[in-house]
Design a binder for these strands. Structure first.
Lengths: 160, 160
DNA sequence: GTCATTGCAAACCTTTTGCACGAAT
DNA sequence: ATTCGTGCAAAAGGTTTGCAATGAC
């Protein structure tokens, strides 16, 4: 199943006449098998043992390529860098505003959005990205917050 | 109406015991009266004539403050920097993948998203951000594209 | 053999920070 | 008077680029 996704994604590269280099295969494999929404740095560190001379620039270039092909999507969670996620099955993300954790939510009901947006905007719509913000269960417990009304206690503001 | 929004936003600053400085008022006014999704640089250039010694750092700090307060939201459109939008009324955005234009769409049906996401993820949900991607009417005309199937002609890829 | 891709390091550019001055409460 | 906010310039940090060498097709 994960292998199907990998094969399918590799086929997309071939279809676009993009060379299948070891770097691309290994990065793609990492993304297909890890759903931890890694940053560029995370991917780089995880793979440099397998690929001793791997360059950070190559990781950047490869991810950009995958994003352009629609294989992978970019995410921001409030920290400095960009995070990446293999987009084999449509889903959206819930981001913890306290710790930055990103959780996948598989929820098919967003399909109507594109047609609605197209109708209202006149755009030729190709896709969408939904991000939900909140406090993850762990941070709720850690901070002792169980209801929205308590959130103002948190100073999730510029003084962080 | 725009003045109401401004007054209301200024009141939020006071409520949070945040000082109402000329810089903050002017930047806020700019955002309330301009719906062109400006970048930091755009705001800075628009206001430096009114406020001769305005510092870019102040624009950054102020926008960050407004975002933390929920008065303003951040947007990315594919170019280098971040864009800002006064969030007086809930809406989402459609972004042109060709020219970067951002269009507002006022569509109330996304309210159920938060509860669904909360149920499925266990998060205490505070909000969401929806971004739709596509080709704006102008770029459709310019590129002679009127159907999704023609999009592959575009190489909106890393070779841009 | 050709041409895309890689690795490396330097360059880039947006954003942040430190500090002294000035202003709001 | 005190504390917060501003301006300036320098620094930081993520990302991109130029170029020679390498490797996929």
């Amino acid at each position: 199943m994960a292998e199907d996704m990998l094969t399918q994604a590799l086929q997309q590269l071939k279809d676009h006449k993009i060379r299948v280099t070891p770097q691309r295969q290994i990065i793609l494999t990492y993304l297909v098998t890890h759903h931890n929404h890694p940053s560029v740095e995370t991917i780089y560190q995880a793979l440099e043992s397998q690929l001793p001379n791997l360059s950070l620039a190559t990781v950047y270039n490869t991810l950009k390529l995958f994003v352009d092909l629609g294989i992978v999507i970019e995410l921001q969670n409030g920290d400095a860098g960009t995070h990446y996620d293999f987009f084999g099955r449509p889903h959206y993300h819930v981001v913890c505003e306290n710790c930055g954790k990103i959780t996948d939510v598989f929820e098919p009901d967003l399909s109507g959005i594109d047609t609605t947006a197209a109708r209202l905007s006149g755009y030729l719509v190709t896709g969408h990205n939904m991000e939900v913000y909140g406090l993850c269960p762990e941070c709720q417990a850690k901070l002792g917050i169980h209801h929205k009304s308590e959130l103002q206690r948190l100073n999730l503001s510029h003084t962080e």
